[in-house]
């Protein structure tokens, strides 16, 4: 093998290694990002209360309260 052929071959190998490394790094970054997103989404924080629906309805005054308020009403 000539010197220039050896250099090309080495460059090719080097490029191959670089591509593998880059791909590995990219995958690990993507995995990390996915994990992060999952962990943030999975976190049970107060923001999840936004999803909670509440039905605001009036109530009848309880009988016990009417009774309790009677003497006070009379006193008034």
């Amino acid at each position: 093998m000539t010197s220039s052929a050896r250099t090309i071959s080495m460059r090719a190998t080097h490029r191959g290694h670089t591509t593998t490394l880059c791909a590995g790094l990219l995958i690990s970054l993507m995995l990390t990002a996915a994990c992060n997103i999952t962990s943030i989404e999975d976190e049970n924080t107060l923001s999840s209360l936004e999803q909670m629906d509440i039905n605001i309805q009036n109530e009848k005054i309880e009988d016990s309260l009417h009774k309790a308020m009677e003497p006070k009403q009379g006193a008034r």
Binding site: E59, I61, S64, A68
Partner: peptide
């Protein structure tokens, strides 16, 4: 908060 929404029956029961 209920009384501010005008839901006074509920508010009265809760205050009680």
């Amino acid at each position: 908060a209920y009384s501010k929404l005008g839901v006074h029956g509920k508010a009265a029961n809760l205050y009680a």
